[in-house]
Each structure stands twice: as C-alpha cells, then as structure tokens.
Computed example of a mutant assay.
Amino acid sequence: MKNRNSTSDFILLGLLINSKATGIVFAVIFTIFVVAVTANLVMIFLIHVDSRLNTPMYFLLSQLSIMDTVFICTTVPKLLVDMVSKEKTISFVACGTQLFLYLTMIGSEFFLLGLMAYDRYVAVCNPLRYPVLMNRRVCLLMAAGAWFGGFLDGFLITPITMNFPYCGSQSINHFFCEIPAVLRLACADTSLYETLMYICCVLMLLIPISIVSTSYSLILLTIHRMRSAEGRKKAFTTCSSHLTVVSIFCGAAFYIYVLPQSFHTPEQDKVVSAFYTIVTPMLNPLIYSLRNKDVLRAFKKRFVQCLSAQKVSTNDA
C-alpha cells in the first residue's frame, strides 16, 4: 500500500459526525473560544499593568494564561473552519505542527501547575521567607523550566509519531491531530512506542501531581494551625482555585493518556479532549478571577478608567 507520510493530506472527521446539531455546537464552541481568548488576554494585561499584581503568583498565572491562549488557538480555529466547510483536510506538515504545539502546551501546563503549587506552599507555610525564596530570578527560572519541559515533550514525541508509515485510510476520527487518533492509522507495529509513551505520560503526570500533593498536604496542616479565621479563609480560597484547575486538567489527561484504550472509545476520547482543550482554557482565568479580589479590583479599576477616558473624549468632541 502507498505510504502517505508526506504525499497526502489527512482528513479530520471532526467532533460530530453527521449531526444535525452542528450549527448549535458551532455557536457554543465559538462563544467559548471568544470568551477564553478574551479572558486570558485580559488576565495577561491586568497582571502586566497593575502594580498590585506584580507578584510571583500572578507572574506564574500570566504564564498559564499565555499557555491557555496558545493551547486553544492550536485546535479550535481549525475545528470551527472544518464545521462550516466541506473540505476537512489537514496537511501532513500542519498535522505535525498542530501535534507539536499541542504537546508543548499540555506539557508546559503540567509542569507550571506543579510549580504554582510550590509557590502557594512557600506563601502559606513560609511567608517571611517568601520574597527570598520566590524572587524574580527564581520565578523566571520556574517559567523557563516549565516552557522547556513542554518543548522537550513536543520535540521528542512529534518526530517519532509522524515518522510512522501511514497508509490506507486517511481519516482521523478526531477534531485535531491527537496522538492516539493518529496512531490508529499507522500500518506498522506501534505497541512498543505506545508503551514508552505511556511510561512517559505517567512520569509527566506523577511529577506535578507529587509536587501538588506534597505542597497542599503541608498547606492544609499550616491552615489548620492558623488562629486567624480571615487568614484561613484567604489561604483556602487561593489554594482551592488552583486545586480545581489541577483536578480538571490532570484528570482529563489521565483519562486520555494513562487509562488503557480498552476502557474508552474514540467518541469518548473526543468528548474528553474537547473538554480540556476547549473548556479548560476558558475556565482557568474565570476560576482565578472570579474568586480573587485582587484581580476583580484591578479589573474594576481599569474599567472605570476606560469609561472616564471615553466620557472625556466624548465631551471634548
């Protein structure tokens, strides 16, 4: 059979196949996409311009917003175009690029979420040493480490995945080039590679989850010993937001990459993938902003300034 490694396009079957609800689903996904990109860009802007948000926690949060913006832009625009067009093809190079960006972002988020847990541990358990332990240089190194870890993940896995011979069917039963869906088209034995990838995914999940578990165990002990009810409430609110994000993101990734394929179908994979590639990037900034008084205060301040500036310009006109 003819090798299709670089001579033919793939066909993405999409999120829904032969569904009459395509219009409604398109509207929902488009709305989520706009909200997610807008919310993340607003978070990045507020953290950059507001002096009260120039802290290590918000610096790491701005990195998460950058990752989420790139993450959702990697898959959703192509999905939306495919939903309104008859041609649902994606070139071999575009598929590899999408796979690389996806792996880089998901790997970077894993490491960053673990480092954010460490940041909360230092803030709650060692508040007096926080400025020293989480200085600007340390924050930059943490962010660079998270990005490098994700890049390494994408750089190692993408070439191997795309170098398998793909022959016969071109149809990927997914709405983007995700590894399990792409490998189903390979006409070579991928069992060894899938085993190695499984071990890699487990390790990538264990590292941040271990950091998160250890950090929050120590945080809970510290919160329990606090005498101030206000201090306990503030610490618990900040930490619960981060734990919510970690649980959603890592839980979905665990389902796709760690749980054996025999326990889920391609259709279930698409639903779970849609949740953490489309919904999660929208939830992250909303979870942090709606439960954070500093972010809400900064947003109200900038909103009032914009209204005042607009009012002045209108009066001058």
Rank of each mutant, 00 (worst) to 15 (best):
T74I: 04
I17Y: 00
K88I: 04
M105K: 04
F59W: 08
L101A: 12
I44S: 02
L41C: 13
Y130I: 00
T22N: 08
Y118R: 02
M67N: 12
S91V: 00
L12P: 09
F33W: 01
K20Q: 01
V34N: 01
T69W: 11
Y130G: 00
S91G: 14
Y130P: 00
R4G: 09
I24M: 01
Y102N: 09
V81K: 12
P131D: 10
D119N: 15
N18A: 13
G96T: 13
Y102P: 02
Y121E: 10
M134K: 12
C73R: 03
S6F: 14
Y121T: 11
N40W: 03
V84L: 15
T89W: 01
L64G: 14
L12M: 14
I17N: 00
S85K: 08
I72Q: 01
E109P: 06
L46E: 10
F100V: 10
I29T: 03
V49R: 15
M43V: 06
V37Q: 06
L112E: 04
L103N: 11
S91K: 10
R129I: 02
Y58M: 09
F59T: 11
G14E: 07
V35D: 01
V28F: 00
I72V: 05
T7E: 05
S8R: 08
K88R: 13
I47C: 10
M134W: 09
R136M: 12
K86F: 08
M116D: 09
A117I: 10
T89L: 00
S85W: 11
